[in-house]
Amino acid sequence: MNVFRLAGDVSHLVAIIILLVKIWRSKSCAGISGKSQVLFALVFTTRYLDLFTVFISAYNTIMKVVFLAMSYATVYLIYMRFRNMYDSENDTFRVEFLLVPVIGLSFLENYAFTPLEILWTFSIFLEAVAIMPQLFMITKTGEAESITTHYLFFLGLYRALYIANWVWRYHTEEFFDQIAVVSGVVQTIFYCDFFYLYVTRVLRGKAKMILP
């Protein structure tokens, strides 16, 4: 555990809490892509199956359970509790265009051809693209509420900090996880355009981020 990794995990946690609290307080999930949230719940579910097979640390186990619980709570709020506010007309990204290639790739490129390894690889590849329905929705409507952009900022920050963590681990313990690093870098690139808009628009006091 290093400071980048811990800060990355905290950013991830903050992002998910921001989203949950926003939906809960406003009793609305307007502007939030339910599809992205279902994909994230699927990411956590397929990655954390090792909760049943190996024990790494109390921190590891607690964080996994918290991420799982919060991602399912988010999906519940969007599709059940506040489904009247769910903006399905703008959440039209075709998820099968992500799932089919990701399933195919996870069978082709994995550390071992076993169910747990393939599912873990699937979760890594899927996480890299799971935010796309959300970014697509913002592009389609042309705007995002500032709380939604804070959520995306902390998600992107989490990814950037994980890259710093991998650089650190590579130099200190010669740790290199090829699948995680390559898809992690790809995932971070998706946030770059958003980061630029976030800094130039949201941080200058706009209530909403309006796309140019």
């Binding site: 990794r5 190996v54 996994k64 994995n110 550390y111 071992a112 390894e117 963590n165 996880d177 090829q178």
Partner: peptide, 10 residues
Amino acid sequence: SLHINPKDEL
């Protein structure tokens, strides 16, 4: 070739 790392990251 690829080898399995301990999956200690989240």
